[in-house]
Design a protein around this nucleic acid. Structure first.
Lengths: 263, 263
DNA sequence: GCTTGACCTTGACGCTGGGTCAACCCTCCA
DNA sequence: TGGAGGGTTGACCCAGCGTCAAGGTCAAGC
């Protein structure tokens, strides 16, 4: 007959695990010898190996117990189901691997390839890395929040970049993170941006983007906090009848400065 | 700015999880408003999404922390290593799937292939399943106690089965589990066995098997308990100068019946 | 007969990644 | 003013064991 460590060694488990299975009733307590040691027979080996085979497949011990105590046909069904789950788990892990590879190579996070390409295009335009990281973070949030929209939005961004004025805008923005709030170049950005917006409105290119309003506010707030000049830029634009950054909208004249008494 | 539940919703986690990350220092505690509510900015969303991306890959949270706080080159190394672990896990699960398929019967998992083949050969000879199960349990014990010997012993058993008398012996033993102790066929078995032993001794095929003496006694005792006729069979053989079952030995004449006074 | 070292026993706490109360506070709306 | 529906901390709970702790047992060697 076998001692607990012989049993454990043969089934490839630890002594502690065997005792745990006794505790939860998964493996019946065997006879003891006169000194209280547990003594096992071959049936225990068989049962233990079955337990481990199922447990290694990720089956919770409670379900292992149900399966082993059920009839052979239920057992077969259960094993079939577990095998299906195993296949699904393997597929999941393979998907995780793919994401992980992109995480190492791409933008340090699982952004869709389209976004990575877009950020690379900005880099190619000479935009500084700090600004690109800000953009990237914004895209991370967009990817998390509205993954179904992201490819369409990216396509629109690519179109915009075909406009030389937009390229110029980015080259200005690139260095703007360190400007003081009263830097005159902030006005230059505002002028450029307004020209772009007017042109976009005339071309009928301003439509709904599909984003939630609050989400747009959140993205805007990160922009405002990124640089001292950002708030002033938005203020200038608002004076001229435009509001927002992530989504720039025309503000009707009668709704400008709503905090003033509209006597 | 965001409340905890808004943050959680953006990143697709539960509020409880966010608080857990604060507790373990994975996500820095943000500012509080005047009533003690946590208020988050977009950077927290980004960090939280990164945490989830790694955690979904199965990375333990402690390691997520190391990775996110490390430089980009260490981050790359860490991701490489995680990918290696993922590959290993996938292979392990595929192996588990193969074992799961064989789980229907006990012996394939508990025994080396050589023993399974041997038992199949016995089945092929028409030996009944009950006897085979007894044999199987004995082999499980042997495999547990002396795994290094098992292939050699099995090889010897295969050789023995090349002898037609041995085949005949098994066909007799197969049905013998239910015989009464005084069944005349027990004597037939004894005769057959003695012929086989004498031939083996003459051929010089009797050597040490490497088993522990106590272990041999144990295997014999299970044989004795398996059937009423078993004890009588051993007694007959002992009268004729043979002792044992698992390991049959010639007993010197002066050591026969040692319990009698050797005056 | 004594020591040593390997093994056995029970019992209890620790770990991960949170779920799920409880008990109370804050804000908003009718 | 009160009730819903947020938020807060604190505490216990789960699997599946690992890992002490504190002691009893067994076989071997002196």
């Amino acid at each position: 007959m076998l001692t607990i460590s012989q049993l454990a060694a043969y089934a490839g488990v630890t002594v502690r695990a065997v005792r745990h299975y006794h505790q939860i009733g998964l493996l019946p307590e065997p006879e003891r010898d006169q000194s209280g040691y547990r003594i096992y027979d071959a049936a225990a080996v068989v049962r233990l190996i079955r337990i481990r085979t199922l447990a290694d497949a990720g089956v919770p011990l409670a379900r292992v117990q149900e399966l082993l105590d059920a009839g052979p046909e239920k057992f077969g069904d259960g094993v079939q189901e577990i095998d299906k789950e195993l296949r699904a788990e393997i597929r999941r892990l393979q998907g995780t691997r793919r994401r992980l590879v992109r995480l190492a190579t791409g933008e340090h996070l699982a952004l869709p390839q389209s976004v990575v390409d877009y950020l690379d295009r900005l880099r190619g335009l000479g935009v500084e890395e700090r600004y690109i990281e800000m953009e990237r973070d914004a895209w991370i949030m967009i990817a998390a929040q509205a993954p179904h929209l992201i490819d369409a939005v990216i396509a629109k961004k690519h179109e915009e970049l075909d406009d030389p004025d937009m390229v110029k805008l980015y080259s200005l923005l690139s260095g703007a993170l360190d400007w003081p709030a009263d830097d005159p170049r902030v006005d230059e950005i505002a002028d450029l941006l307004e020209r772009l917006m007017i042109r976009a409105v005339q071309a009928g290119e301003v439509g709904t983007d599909g984003f939630d309003d609050q989400f747009v506010d959140l993205l805007d707030s990160t922009m405002v906090e990124s640089s001292p000049g950002a708030a002033r830029l938005l203020a200038i634009l608002e004076e001229r009848g435009w509001r927002g950054w992530t989504r720039i909208e025309r503000v009707p004249a009668d709704r400008l400065n709503p905090e003033l008494p509209s006597s």
